[in-house]
Design a protein around this nucleic acid. Structure first.
Lengths: 207, 207
DNA sequence: TATTGTTATACTCTATAACTATA
DNA sequence: TATAGTTATAGAGTATAACAATA
């Protein structure tokens, strides 16, 4: 103990509650206490909200977030072993099997037996998988655009940087043995639209 | 809003682009493609990492994140109905029952029958629950402190603000009917005292 | 009829042990 | 013996339907 006391005013924020400002009727606003300053609590909420939008966006393609991440990794790094891809995504290799099955059964990914080590399977996208990934990229842009509409261009970029800064925190849960995988920092180049420009682009339209 | 620049001091990794030698051995770094700029992907990773630290920190008290959140809400808002607490935490009331049971069985929370509406249960902390919550607050500070050690004080505050800014995004998944609950913004006052404290790292170990 | 809490149930995600076939 | 992929299984977390008591 006895350590830096870095300015985190545990202090309650401004006495919110009271006769509310955000409640339509006479309801008293709920006091969230420290939860409003809890990184984990807010991360969980934000993650669920963003995933909800992701899932809705990709529903037409019948692709879940985890499936999309596999397609991206395999597409960008053809020939990786299963264990490498699963470790890169912090997915246990046991749970990775049915996930990969779902993609291979749909003809999007192919397991190829490696010649040098016949235990391992090298992963590649099929032409169909590559074509789908290309379409999914458009959906992905729409999805991220909606986030940017909500946070602003700078806000989204800051968020990406901060989240990347949490890499390696908490002992890297979800990984297999001790396969730590690093993620390169986000290129601060503004993708898609420019900064906080509310370019009405929220029209979710399946490709 | 003064400086809206990322200004991350995390600049230490090599600008790996694909086939560079950022790996200790001859391993080729994995190209994450758009995942490195995917808010959802990075949110998920960060949430898992932060929860891992939270769980380890609160393991001695045998308290999970969801249980902690219930104790905080009930402690701050005694007398709320079950449905109000569950809605505030985006937990379906059906799933809230066993969660509450676990706290009531341990004598931390008490269901009291409301007089005006005998269908509902008003929730209160027991003295034991209030005492535990007080101890948990210390663990919570240690936990958040470690996050701050990783991100810097400003970084953590920015993160809280950005995450709060995603409130209401994605249609609010996880809620019961249409009970939207708002969360007040964090103490966004730009008290830019000191940034990060590089010296004191790993202030505390999970008890 | 609508709401509150509840039970039962199912589906997803995650975690551990053990098996096989290679090395 | 160790590793890559697999199977089986168990545990959380989350989803819907339906019921009893109450409004």
């Amino acid at each position: 103990m006895t350590d830096s006391r870095p300015t985190r005013s545990t202090a309650r924020r401004t006495p919110v509650s009271s006769t509310t400002s955000a409640e339509p009727d006479g309801e008293t606003a709920i006091d969230y206490g420290v939860l409003g300053e809890s990184v984990g609590f807010l991360l969980k909420r934000a993650q669920m909200a963003v995933f909800a939008d992701f899932i809705a966006t990709f529903a037409a393609a019948d692709i879940r977030p985890a499936q999309f991440s596999v397609l991206v990794i395999v597409g960008r790094n053809p020939g990786l072993k299963q264990s490498q891809v699963s470790a890169a995504l912090s997915i246990k290799r046991t749970n990775f099997v049915p996930l990969l099955d779902s993609l291979e059964d749909r003809g999007l990914v192919k397991r190829k037996m490696a010649a040098m080590d016949r235990r391992s399977h090298a992963l590649h996208l099929t032409p169909k998988g590559a074509a789908l990934l290309k379409e999914l990229s458009l959906l992905w842009e729409q999805h991220e655009q909606r986030i940017q509409d909500k946070l602003g261009g700078d806000g989204r970029t800051q968020l990406l940087t901060l989240l990347t800064g949490l890499e390696g925190f908490g002992g890297a849960a979800g990984l297999d043995e001790a396969d730590l995988v690093e993620l390169p920092p986000p290129t601060a180049k503004p993708r898609g639209r420019r900064a906080a420009k509310p370019a009405a682009k929220s029209a979710a339209e399946p490709a």
